[in-house]
Amino acid sequence: MGAEPAQLSTVASARASTWRRWLLRYEVLLLAVLIVEWLLFYHFGTTTNRRGVTVGFGTLDRQFDILRHSCEIGLLALALTPVILTGGIDLSVGSLLGLCAVVFGGLTHALGLPLPVAAVVTLLVGAAAGGVNAGLICQLRLPPLIVTLGTYSLFRGLAEAFTRGSVTYSDFPAGFLMLGQGRWAGLPVQAWIFLMVAVGVWIWVHRTFSGRAFRVIGFSPDGARYAGVGVRGQLTAAYVAAGLIAALAALVYTSRLGQAKADAGLGYELFAITAVVLGGTSIFGGRGTVTGTLLGVAAIAVLKNGLATLPVVMRMNAAEELAGLLTGALLLAALAAGKLAERWRRSPAG
């Protein structure tokens, strides 16, 4: 009974420190980093040229560019968030993007299907490919890392086989290209798509029981089973959705570039995983938010595009490389800081 007063005082201090906890939340810290990053680029990356026109980071066009270029990787990161929350991983989303782009190109060009039909079929192919991952992982209980490594190779290989490595589908109708190049209500069209998916995934993960189940499975698969959570069903949903969103990303990609090739989205999975983990989602599952993922995507995108506007970097012509280097370093720093903070938090107690 002696423990009771102590517990009561925790109640009080818990309430008092709510705002502090909120401030120290990972997402808030990441948002602060993002804002600082943006302001720095705005300050150093915006110049006025001789004709008095503002160029560089501060222009609206540049901001739209950032949006356009981050949509596909952003979509993949959204696709991966539920999967990683369950403690799994999907390395195959980049390859699937390539496969779906090629499938879409083939359906419209070789088979001459109307665009909406081809788009729907492509989405179904993506979902089915996600289903293959899900089947191997949930039904046969194989490790996600190796299964999706296999399908990483398989999906890309199928894309190469279909196009014999060289066929590039282009000449898409202007209506379709709108999707990746046009604007609607002031914003790039794919930004709206991205926003919709982001809201959808956010609602799924944070507002439905399914999202709750992802966390529980990530924390403790056994605990989930004993609580009567349908582990297989939830995992299947996460992987199938990842496939579906990767297919959607393929459509956006194809439309933005106006062409579909087998190497579409090569290496995107790495950036997507980086964005998710940078966004504070634990690779072991259970912890993480969609907001964090969005901030992670934004931090990477702004870094990449912002660096390109800095005069120093422009002279070196090394924006992408510098961004990659900094992203890797940022990821390691975030992880190490988290780990050290955890140790430091535990050491006085234990």
Binding site: V216, F219, S220, G223, A227
Partner: peptide
């Protein structure tokens, strides 16, 4: 600790887990 409750989850979410 392994099956009865999910330790990382808040009390409220633990309670609503089976009766969702």
């Amino acid at each position: 600790r392994r099956h009865g409750v999910v330790l990382e989850l808040p009390v409220g979410q633990n309670i609503s887990l089976a009766a969702w």
